[in-house]
Design a protein around this nucleic acid. Structure first.
Lengths: 338, 338
DNA sequence: GCCTGGCACTCAGCGCGCGCGAGTGCCAGC
DNA sequence: GCTGGCACTCGCGCGCGCTGAGTGCCAGGC
């Protein structure tokens, strides 16, 4: 195992490299951090760290930079999560408090996270899968045309047009609406299908086709909307990537455009607690020189979606993790209130 | 006025520069385009074009590149709109035909436009201002809590929670719903306010507070949603900007993040027909080295929103304009059908 | 009057060589 | 096990001259 001092050296290297974006040498290290030993000793430690694969030299006779493995150790063992300061906390609150609806909450969260971390922010919309139905509404637009509106407890609204196989009277409509809501209101989405299975049987023969159509549209909506949406922002921060950003930025932008990729990325992250994926730990190749910090958020104890940031592997992990955690917590509160 | 041949020279310069991204000299010009004159003559023409400000030299003893003014002349006088080929047209149709709802239409349009033009695509959601109300629905969530759902003829749905000053019975609710819809269904948004002004008077005193609250929420929604939304895509194409892209990309990304800026940009463009804003013609400074090609689209004859692309001033104008026009037309058709 | 070939001039880009200096590995001594 | 000393490495920046594409101008020709 690595000695305590060698861990300190690694910590110092990460710290300096994140700050200066330049390979850090033994002399500079001893000057900036009082490690109590001479540069020569630090050099020995660095050689050991390099043997273990935690740091590397871009070329001979240059300083060292942390490898993905080095960052991993740093995050796991050496870095805490830097809590937000009071003013920062207040800024988060006041920024998010003005939101008027779910879209607005998500949009504000993205902006906030991008500003706080100065990186690209990704926020997933609260998932329908783990949400419950607040209300299902049916509107008659034309004799044989209905609109189905689904309202969730997270305040999300989905609507679908339904073309009926036969005209459907107002009284049947009211009946269906009432029966539907008494069965599914307050239920989890995943629990809905068996609850409505036998509903058509309660109706007259001529209405059964329409009822079935409505039901299948409803179930379809539940499934389709599990392909969850997300919002990203702060892409201008990609220019802060460093000198090699022209090479890196393209695949990252492409990844960000592919919601599928991002959803998978967030999906792979652990369900509870904060997840940090560093460099090549990311399955998607275009993100091999980025790190992704993500965490679940939700109303109450349960996570309903995730949010996070994407930035260069050379990022301020404690600060970023602190910001991500703080924002996730407060967004959870907001959702719980509304 | 410039002679016909000089215009041809300008056209050739624009054409070659767009293709090669390198300053074009007199010799190369005569080789690639058979202008029927010698390089020396072309040089004279180029000197004249430079005096007039249509082209410039990046430095002495280099070829010429078009100025914004040169592109302007090119777009106005020298370039047609390149129509889409049959296969391209079919691709547009099949790509957009699968859309299931308004969000999907907009999302697909963005992707399509970005792919066709290989540039950044911007699509504005169909405006509520010029839309009409299809239906207003009121749902009772709790004794003193309602949900207001607004459905437009473009298929857009907006919802708002309403906290009532007093409990509101089911029969009053049905009454309000019916009266509201008979007055506003089919009406333009801008026409709504005077039509509902006196509605509270039709209700019992104890319900009037709630009715007023509902109405003001409705009107608020109309106004708020005039702050229209838009969707962008294809930002990865920014890397195709050319060798100076690291400098240019940042302000452009920042502009794209600011929906306000983009909405203003689209808003300034002419209401009918295609608008091309070249380089410094764009009011927003960050977009000074980009061109914006935009056009209105809508169901029926009337434009309800705009779409367009943002790219380097050095872009293929005829091709881009052709793609933008074709997509706008077909999106219009889709909206008209649904 | 306009076009053309010829000619001298300009200058960005490229490749080369060189010296500097930060950084390293190793070793003998405390 | 830490330290100072020392020889070595090599990327980076700088200055230099060459090259060649491109220009402006001019005198001559259709």
């Amino acid at each position: 195992m690595l000695s305590e001092r060698r861990l300190q050296v690694l910590r110092a290297i990460v710290h300096d490299y994140v700050g200066t974006e330049e390979p850090v040498g033994s002399k500079a290290l001893t000057e900036r951090h009082n490690l109590g030993v001479s540069p020569a000793t630090v050099r020995n430690d660095m050689a050991a760290l390099e043997d273990e694969g935690f740091i590397a030299q871009p070329h001979t006779s240059a300083g060292r930079i942390p490898t993905d493995k080095g960052y991993r150790l740093f995050v796991d063992k050496l870095a805490g999560v830097k809590p937000m300061t009071g003013p920062e906390r207040r800024a988060i609150h006041s920024f998010l408090d003005g939101a008027v609806d779910l879209d607005d909450v998500v949009a504000r969260t993205v902006r906030l996270l991008a500003q706080l971390t100065r990186q690209v922010a990704v926020v997933q919309y609260p998932s329908l899968t783990r949400s419950t139905v607040r209300h299902v509404e049916l509107l008659s637009l034309a004799p044989a045309r209905l609109m189905l509106v689904l309202i969730t407890d997270t305040g999300r609204v989905e609507q679908r047009l339904v073309d009926c196989p036969a005209p459907f009277g107002e009284s049947s409509l009211a009946d269906l609406r009432a029966r539907l809501n008494s069965r599914v209101a307050g239920r989890r989405f995943t629990d809905v299908p068996p609850l409505v299975e036998d509903l058509p049987e309660a109706f007259d023969v001529e209405d059964r086709g329409t009822v079935s159509t409505v039901l299948s549209t409803l179930l379809e909506t539940l499934v389709e909307e599990n392909e969850e949406r997300l919002m990203i922002g702060g892409t201008a921060n990609l220019t802060r990537f460093g000198h090699d950003f022209p090479l890196v930025i393209r695949p990252v932008l492409e990844a960000l455009e592919e919601q599928v990729v991002l959803l998978k990325l967030l999906g792979e992250a652990g369900d509870s607690g904060m997840t940090v994926r560093i460099g090549h730990e990311n399955a998607y190749e275009g993100l091999n020189s980025t790190s992704v910090v993500s965490v679940g958020y939700g109303s109450g104890g349960e996570a309903v979606a995730k949010l996070g940031v994407v930035g260069p592997t050379r990022m301020d992990y404690p600060g970023t993790m602190g910001a991500v955690r703080a924002v996730a917590r407060y967004v959870g509160q907001i959702l719980a209130e509304s």
